[in-house]
Amino acid sequence: MLKKRGDSKSRINTEINAGSMADIAFLLLIFFLVTTTIEVDKGILVRLPPWSEEDPLEAKVEKKNLISVLVNANNDLLVNGEPEQLSSLKDRIIDFITNPTGREDRPDSPDRAIVSLQNDRGTNYDTYLTVYNELQAAYRELRDEEAEKRFGTVFDNLTRDQKKQVIEVYPMKLSEAESTDFGED
């Protein structure tokens, strides 16, 4: 009798019941599971031109090297002054840069081409970003093509040096003019 009592007492002293540990950990786990939002932020990466107080120098650009893309306050797209559909913008840009038919009013080589993008203050951000996306898509497509031709793989898989070579062929020269004051709300 006496011995048994002593036995049970010593057991209480030496062991902590860890059975509820799992429950506590589960509770915390569920809390973090619920609060976690594995959110990946994706977007179009751009580099803005540095700010300078002086007026930009009047750069002499031959007219044939320039394609102007204008998105006005009504969200209409004008390419070189003519209305254009968003869906055909990319092909138009690619056609302009590569100049497959060797037209006189197109750039002599793709690295001379300059895309000028202008918008009004009243342009929808949605439309602006779609246009910007199409411009980037055009260059991505050209670079992928060139990478395929030279190295047999897409642009993203190239090494740094190889990327540089491809970019030299198709440098993205985008000039963003100050937006005009139309249609601000």
């Binding site: 932020d41 179009i44 580099r47 803005l48 540095p50 700010w51 203050r121 342009t123 937006s179 709300d185």
Partner: peptide, 22 residues
């Protein structure tokens, strides 16, 4: 509309924060 976005872009350029992700 782009007006407010242009203002933000201008301020970013002025503070030399040029890497931007739309």
């Amino acid at each position: 509309t782009m007006g407010i976005v242009s203002d933000v872009k201008e301020q970013l350029r002025k503070s030399n924060q040029l890497k931007v992700n739309y």
